[in-house]
């Protein structure tokens, strides 16, 4: 088998599997940029996966399913926002609690929805003309769905918002130094709430993508720990949407290869590869000069109260 087919298959799978990771990572980047660590991604995703499937199944509209999945994720994330922003509670614990609650609720509500195929999933599409471009065509324009493209478009948009707009400056200021932001008239609480809710929305959408497009059916526990990978990817991406794309796609490529390369390497060890690789890349990056420019938001996971600090 030629190298071209290897590249085509690997990259095309990279887009398909990387997309849900990327969507949720983009959301978490915004939450963390505003200074709120949300370890509840897994919980929000599974709630999205459940509600997205139920809506798509009962109405026959997959896009409505994805939208509702996002809304449910957003609503669900308000719990975390309330507890960690308003009540100023520990964000690590609150996030873990959100994961537990989400996995539990989706499991309870999802009873009886297992084993049903979704007849109206978001379909794969083949873009005419473009798909016949050699190599690039089959990777980009064959067998992917619209969500994949929309997510790719979202990356530069969110990058622009974060680094080139007023609201982006406010978000980053709130995450770096809420007291300064506050003194400049930025409403810290509002920004934090909005970012957490936006993160919840995207986590929900990512979950919905799983149950409506990626594998159109519902089974409890179907997110299978992807939410934790998202937490890691957010850090891996240095809280930057562009690197978020690179990280998600890199992880997805390694994940695909962990099945592809099984003929040569022991499958158990191969499956550990994406996780080890993430650490190795970080070590590599840390050697360079990039390190200083790309620290975590200084006020990440620190609650803010006016007049303290």
């Amino acid at each position: 088998m030629g190298w071209e087919t290897w590249i085509i298959a690997t990259l095309s799978r990279t887009l398909a599997y990387g997309t849900p990771l990327l969507i949720a990572t983009l959301g978490e980047i915004f939450a963390e940029r505003a200074g709120v660590l949300n370890l509840g991604v897994e919980g929000m995703m599974i709630m999205g996966a459940y509600s997205g499937f139920v809506i798509a199944y009962t109405t026959g509209h997959p896009w409505l399913g994805i939208l509702v999945a996002g809304v449910v994720g957003a609503v669900f994330s308000i719990i975390h926002a309330f507890v960690s922003v308003t009540l100023k509670a520990n964000q690590v614990v609150s996030g873990l609690a959100l994961t537990m609650l989400g996995l539990g609720l989706a499991g309870v509500l999802g009873r009886g929805w297992e084993g049903l195929p979704l007849f109206t999933p978001i379909h794969k599409m083949t873009v005419p003309v473009l798909s016949s471009i050699p190599v690039l065509g089959p990777i980009l324009f064959k067998g992917q769905n619209l969500v994949v493209y929309l997510t790719m478009l979202l990356v530069p948009v969110l990058w622009y918002v974060l680094f080139r707009t007023r609201i982006g400056i406010s978000i980053r200021a709130v995450g770096e130094s809420p007291a300064t932001a506050d003194s400049l008239g930025v409403n810290v609480t509002r920004i934090r709430y909005l970012c957490v809710i936006f993160g919840g929305f995207l986590a929900g959408v990512a979950g919905g993508y799983l149950s409506v497009a990626y594998r159109p059916s519902w089974t409890q526990g179907m997110t299978g720990g992807m939410g934790w990978i998202v937490i890691a990817l957010t850090i891996f991406a240095f809280w930057n949407p562009i690197y978020g794309l690179l990280g998600s796609y890199l992880f997805a490529a390694l994940y695909h290869l962990s099945f592809r390369l099984q003929a040569w390497v022991s499958p158990e060890l191969l499956k550990a590869m994406p996780y080890l690789f993430a650490i190795l890349v970080l070590i590599f990056v840390a050697q360079g000069t990039l390190k200083k420019k790309m620290g975590a938001p200084a006020a990440l996971s620190v609650p803010y109260t006016r007049g303290e600090e």
Binding site: A16, G224, K271
Partner: peptide
């Protein structure tokens, strides 16, 4: 044959299947 090392994991099953498809 591809092994996913889990009894239940839809994403792993999907990617394993795709890997087999890529291998013909």
């Amino acid at each position: 044959v591809r092994w996913i090392m889990e009894w239940f994991n839809p994403a792993a099953a999907k990617e394993a299947t795709e890997a087999l498809i890529a291998d013909g």
